[in-house]
């Protein structure tokens, strides 16, 4: 058998079209990926400049914190008194409740400041404890 008939019977058209497409796709994918290779390596080299790769230090919150005013110091003192009445470690929710019913000024904001300053610290089990050292340093 010869000619177009031979090509059709042996599925030649389909083999050729699919074959060329696969070769093109393969080299095009390779071309695309290697054109990005140096950029990926560049990003990897400068990974320390990227936010997602930057290590968070514990000092950072304290450094960003404004110095305690007299008002803040008084508020910290009041919270210390309330914590003394509680178990150690204590529930933050309970402390906030006590602060509210005791009529402390802006309890949410002040409690947040104490946490940021490291005066009230998490025990990573859902409870908190009072950091005397930080209190003496920042609020006494």
């Amino acid at each position: 058998m010869y000619g177009v008939e031979a090509i059709s019977i042996n599925n030649g058209w389909a083999i050729s079209v699919v074959g060329v497409s696969i070769v093109f796709t393969g080299l095009m994918l390779l071309s695309l990926s290697i054109s990005r290779l140096h950029k990926i390596l560049n990003i990897w080299d400068n990974r320390n400049d990227l936010k997602i790769f930057r290590k968070k230090t514990q000092e950072e919150p304290q450094n960003n914190l404004l110095p305690f005013t007299e008002k803040n110091k008084i508020s910290a003192y009041h919270f210390r008194l309330l914590i003394k009445t509680m178990d150690d470690p204590f529930s933050l929710q309970r402390l906030l409740y006590l602060a509210k019913i005791s009529g402390l000024d802006r309890p949410h904001s002040n409690l947040c400041r104490l946490i940021k300053a490291g005066i009230i610290k998490s025990d990573h089990k859902g409870k908190y404890f009072f950091n005397r050292e930080a209190f003496n340093k920042l609020a006494s």
């Binding site: 070769v23 393969g26 080299l27 390779l30 071309s31 695309l32 290697i34 054109s35």
Partner: peptide, 8 residues
């Protein structure tokens, strides 16, 4: 890499 297409 674009020259790769000529090989294809």
């Amino acid at each position: 890499p674009v020259l790769m297409l000529l090989g294809a």
